[in-house]
Design a protein around this nucleic acid. Structure first.
Lengths: 204, 204
DNA sequence: CTATATTAACTTCCATGGAAGCTAGTACTC
DNA sequence: GAGTACTAGCTTCCATGGAAGTTAATATAG
């Protein structure tokens, strides 16, 4: 098949509203998202598709960055999920232990997914499981020595990779972007009260 | 279980390097990402984890926005992938047709995934398949009348939803963010030549 | 103490998507 | 026009993750 797609982060995130675009315009489409917007404006001139300019681009960029980061994970034989778990354990500090439920909450996946991640990591000899003393139900997942060595090396490489990607932005751009992202997230979390433009409830 | 995770976009994207954070600090963690950085700085003071301030936040925000958008898709009985396909067909203009391979390229998934998406949509009566006249191998996927009605309504709701989310940003913020995202993506695509800070090759 | 509820992890089942191979139709070459 | 290559879509198999239910341990009420 050999399509030009760019390692497309496995799912989600990717597409916003359809992502498409190059439908013909091989010249200077300016931008994938701009091309999509042009199609919509032709087909649905009644709608204001300007939000795609931000949201669509945000998603595409995030997908692209993820694909870049994944390359490093894979170099160490890790998937994104496994990398996350090892990193969360390493960050915890000695003795590099955390409970599965804690790891699940931190990495934003269900406990079912976490069980399987730990299974894989345990099989690979990177973590070990043990029961907790206090509570017979409790388990603790700990980095093995091999796991600690691997994540220390992998995380350093990961940071070099992130530095490389961020190197495309100038210092002020970086700061401005960080602030915009932080503020937007905060307003989303804060829910009401921060709204700037009165938003039409999207009900229907 | 009932964890506080926020609909966590099914995968990918989510986590950057482990996402964790609230490890204790229930007060004013400032920020999930900031808390993660603090942990890393304690454990690995030798590393400069500042890129996470941007990349980590970008990923979290993208995941959060996706979760918000998904709500609307689901209101119309659609998954993200199905929505993308219907939107790509609608955007194409009458007669709302595209070849499967074209759809796959546009939505950044493999042809295998596209086959299955089309299967589901066909089963739901939203699209139909036909052979092309010119080339016996070729297929065309078209919106059915029900499909066109559904995506027209769903896309309008989707846009209202995006307007709502973007309403949290002021006009200048919106413009600034759009420009930063566009520029970064462009530099990533352009590959070399645009680099601002000489980046350490992430090799090893 | 017994019954009930809660909690943590695990298990089962299902949906999605990727990789690679398969099939059928088409295009080139000699 | 036979043989080879290519192309487009499909199929098979596998990996991942979510939802919901199960199991075992603990806590609480009567």
């Amino acid at each position: 098949m050999n399509q030009e797609r760019e390692q497309a982060a496995d799912t989600g995130m990717t597409a916003d509203i359809g992502v498409s675009a190059d439908t013909g315009m091989t010249s200077a489409p300016a931008d994938h998202v701009a091309a999509i917007q042009a199609e919509w404006r032709r087909e649905r001139p009644d709608l204001d598709v300007s939000p795609q300019a931000v949201i669509g681009r945000l998603h595409r960029l995030a997908a692209r960055l993820t694909a870049e980061l994944r390359v490093v994970y894979e170099r160490f034989g890790l998937g994104e999920g496994e990398f996350d778990v090892l990193a969360a354990l390493r960050r915890a500090g000695a003795p590099f232990e955390r409970a599965p439920g804690e790891l699940a909450a931190h990495t934003m996946v269900t406990t079912g997914a976490m069980t399987k991640r730990i299974d894989r990591l345990e099989r690979a000899g990177l973590v070990s499981r043990r029961r907790t003393e206090e509570d017979g139900r409790g388990r603790m997942v700990a980095l093995t020595e091999a796991g600690r060595r691997l994540i220390d090396e992998a995380f350093a490489a990961h940071m070099r990779n992130e530095h490389r990607l961020l190197g495309l932005l100038a210092g002020e751009e970086r700061q401005a972007l960080e602030k915009l992202l932080t503020d937007w997230q905060e307003r989303l979390d804060g829910g009401t009260g921060h709204r700037i433009q009165k938003a039409t409830e999207d009900g229907g």
